[in-house]
Amino acid sequence: MTDTAEPAADALPADIAAMSFEQALAELDEIVGRLEAGDVDLEESIAIYARGMHLRRHCEARLKAAEERIERVRLGPDGLPAGTEPFDQQD
């Protein structure tokens, strides 16, 4: 029996996983610029596109983690802060 799952394909490269959001976004912006300019050959375009997808996924995960940590100040009946509650984007 062969295992068709490819967990390594979903794993972020270690250097990307260690990046801050800002570092990953800056590199992603650079990759987009290079691809839009068309100054790379096909093989390199494929490689940097794949890296860009990893960077995008890393940025999205960092943003999601930040959103989950945000708390909203809850006001009491007197209009003064009465504590915090998780941020809910549904409001």
Rank of each mutant, 00 (worst) to 15 (best):
M53R: 15
R74L: 09
D15M: 08
D10T: 11
I46S: 06
D3M: 10
Y49H: 14
A66L: 14
V40F: 06
D39K: 05
T4Y: 13
D3L: 09
A66R: 06
E30A: 15
L35S: 10
H54W: 01
T84Y: 07
R72C: 07
T84H: 01
A65M: 00
D91V: 02
L75G: 05
A5C: 04
D91E: 15
R62T: 02
A11K: 03
F87V: 14
E22P: 08
E36N: 15
P7S: 09
G52F: 04
F87Y: 15
D10G: 04
G33V: 10
P77W: 01
E30F: 11
D39C: 04
D29Q: 04
M1G: 12
P81C: 06
L28T: 02
L12K: 00
E67G: 10
L42T: 14
D88S: 01
Q23N: 06
K64G: 12
Q89P: 11
A5L: 15
P86W: 05
R74Y: 07
A37E: 04
M19P: 09
E71K: 08
R69F: 07
S45T: 11
S20F: 00
E27S: 12
P7R: 08
R69K: 11
L25Y: 06
I46Q: 13
I31C: 10
R72I: 13
G76V: 01
V32I: 15
A11T: 08
E60D: 10
E30H: 10
D10Q: 04
L75H: 03
R51M: 05
L12I: 03
A47Y: 05
M1A: 12
T84K: 13
G83V: 03
V40P: 11
R51H: 03
Q90N: 06
L12T: 04
V32R: 15
T4E: 14
D88L: 03
R69H: 09
V32Y: 11
A14V: 13
E67C: 07
A14K: 05
L25D: 14
L12G: 11
D10W: 07
S45K: 15
T2S: 14
E43M: 13
S20T: 05
P81H: 03
M19W: 02
L35V: 14
A5R: 15
G83L: 13
L35Y: 05
A24F: 05
D29G: 11
E71W: 04
P81D: 13
A18D: 00
V32K: 02
Q90K: 10
A65D: 09
D88V: 06
D88R: 11
K64E: 14
A5E: 15
A61K: 03
G33S: 02
M19Y: 04
D39Y: 02
